[in-house]
Amino acid sequence: MSGLVWGVVWGLAAGVLIAIAALIGVWWERKFSGAIQMRIGPQELGPAGLLQTLADTVKLVLKEDIIPGRADVTVFRIAPLIVFAPIAMSLVVVPYAAGFAPLDTSVGILFFMAVPAVSVIGVMLAGWSSRNTYASIGGVRAAAQMISYELPRTLSVLPFVLLAGSMRPLDIVAAWQWWWVPLLAIGFVVYLISSVAELNRGPFDLPEAESELVAGYFADYSGIRWAIFMMAEYGGLLAAAVFGAALFFGPFSLLPGAAGVVLFVILSAVLATVMMWAKWTFPRMRPDQLMGVAWKVLTPMALVQLVLVGAVVPWL
């Protein structure tokens, strides 16, 4: 029973965390992209425009919830939640401090990789239920892309399981050694690139490619349902950043106590910023080239990393 209560509490906490991360993340992305593009970004509401996102949220909540006449209403309504919920769930296994993860499970790595993959169903359903050619192309593209990038992404974190001998994120964090950073450099690159692709963010934002598909699978969404898609995107960005920061850079081992948590937050922010940077700098790829990158470049790279770690482990 208490497990259920804690589950609800941590689920809500993850939702709130994503909401806060989205509020700050959207503001930061606007400011950051503004700096890249010689713009200023939001500046009117609050100090440095910090409240702009809040105002946007209020606007989105108050907007009319438009459902296209031809849409499959039930599926159309549920789809954003199917996208959002798994991503929020994946946050509960992340180690946020030394020896602390909301859900301390022995299959944490598997959980973190497998659960967000469910959101691809939501994306496909969103595209399909809109009954709109752009949306359905976007949905199908998203399904192909997210499933393809699942593989290199999972392979890229497998070395941790080899090195720590456990799938429990807390064990990995505890076993972290500084020389993991150079050893896992290839894996980190694969992890970062495939995370961006997994999130459908630029330069891999084909499912929502503005110049072709207008908005892709959420072309027909507006108001709060659209906002939930955006929350899911920023939630995914947050999850990829915190998970990557905690595992690849071992902030809790580098600095003890609260200082480690601060370093963890900073590292996560840097990782998230790098992912934004890529989005605002690179052109978008073509669907077939995107698949080529997943299968011909990233997967072999991740396998090489795995072999490398496998060669090192017996000597430890």
Partner: peptide, 16 residues
């Protein structure tokens, strides 16, 4: 041309 392939920054640099 940049905008068409998602490179939004190029558009603003060109506009400058």
């Amino acid at each position: 041309f940049g905008l068409d392939c998602g490179a939004m920054g190029q558009f603003l640099y060109a506009m400058r």
